[in-house]
């Protein structure tokens, strides 16, 4: 595995460098000047110029880029123009909220997705499979914000069981915090769980047609053993890949979910930063997202190899 990681290193480094350049250039491509926004509506051009000078916006782009990158290695992510605070602090403040949401949603996605997938991929229980198929199709067609809105309508309007807006940190108050977390996490996880379930189901149906399943049947293995030991085991690879791919979508969806459920997470920070052209926040969030995506991909590959001895880790 060390060799696999070492071989991966150059391409990973390349991806990160390229995306850091894109993350740096993208906000600067746009018209608009954060210095002007910072100075306020009735600032004189001299004031704006002074602010530009002071925040280093007048330096050549390459110098600004190098400043930013070297700063990152020192743990200095730059200052937010709007909040007038170090970006690292701002991100850390919001990290807990998003981590809690993403973690719980991932767990729900895996549990619900695998359960639905295994149930509908099993040969027996035609009725429950029909129900699951309908459920699957419905969920597949709904984006996270719609599940979120429907959950809000059900729980906020008709059946007031859980709070539908706002948040309480899990670390501060676990009991109340989880109540605020449940709906957004489900809204975020269910559409992705449907995708995972569908993939597991098709893969299980395909594996069931293989010769070794017939052999196991001929040997007299019980249906339960066939399903779990032979079919499921060989379908898990698909499941792992599916889950790895869906986590990216899940994080993207978290931005909308945070907006709908009024949670103050990284997604909301990103949206605000885009609205205000707060360069350093946008840059670090894009870069962070790319690094996370790369990590998830590597972990997926390792998990895949661990599950299936036929697959060797090769870069």
């Amino acid at each position: 595995m060390t060799r696999f990681l070492l071989r991966k290193l150059p391409s990973v480094a390349l991806v990160i460098v390229v995306s850091s350049i894109i993350a740096f250039l993208l906000p600067r491509l746009a018209p608009g000047d954060p210095a002007a926004a910072l100075a306020g509506a009735d600032a004189t051009p001299e004031q704006v110029a002074a602010i530009r000078e002071q925040s280093g916006l007048d330096d050549p782009l390459i110098a600004q880029y190098i400043n930013w990158i070297t700063g990152i290695f020192r743990g200095d992510f730059g200052n937010s123009y709007i909040f007038q605070r170090p970006v690292a602090e701002l991100v850390l403040d919001r990290l807990e909220s998003t981590l809690e949401l993403a973690a719980l949603a991932t767990v729900i996605m895996i549990v619900v997705g695998l359960t639905l997938g295994i149930l509908s991929g099993s040969p027996r229980a035609k009725v429950s499979r029909g129900v699951l198929d309908v459920l699957n199709t419905l969920l597949l067609a709904t984006p996270p914000f719609l599940t979120g809105l429907l959950l809000i309508l059900v729980f906020g309007v008709t059946w007031r069981l859980l709070p539908v807006s706002g948040e309480v940190g899990l670390l501060e108050n676990p009991e109340i915090g989880i109540q605020y977390l449940l709906l957004p996490a489900f809204a975020l996880a269910l559409p992705q769980a449907a995708v995972v379930a569908r993939l597991v189901q098709t893969s299980m149906q395909n594996v069931r047609g293989e010769d070794f399943v017939d052999l196991a049947f001929a040997k007299g293995a019980s249906p339960r053993r066939i399903t779990y030991r032979h079919v499921l085991r060989n379908s898990l690879g698909t499941a792992v890949v599916a889950i790895g791919l869906r986590i990216g979508e899940l994080l993207g969806g978290a931005i909308v979910i945070e907006a709908i459920f009024a949670r103050n997470g990284l997604g909301q920070l990103a949206v605000q930063a885009v609205q205000d052209r707060d360069y350093f926040i946008i840059q670090i969030l894009i870069l962070g997202a790319v690094i996370l995506a790369v990590l998830i991909q590597i972990i997926t590959e390792i998990a895949l190899a661990a599950l299936d001895p036929r697959i060797r880790l090769e870069a």
Binding site: L26, P143, G248, E249, G252, G253, I255, A270, V271, V274
Partner: peptide, 10 residues
């Protein structure tokens, strides 16, 4: 390869 909303935000 971009997750749904991210492309739009960019």
């Amino acid at each position: 390869g971009f997750p749904g909303l991210v492309l739009g935000i960019c």
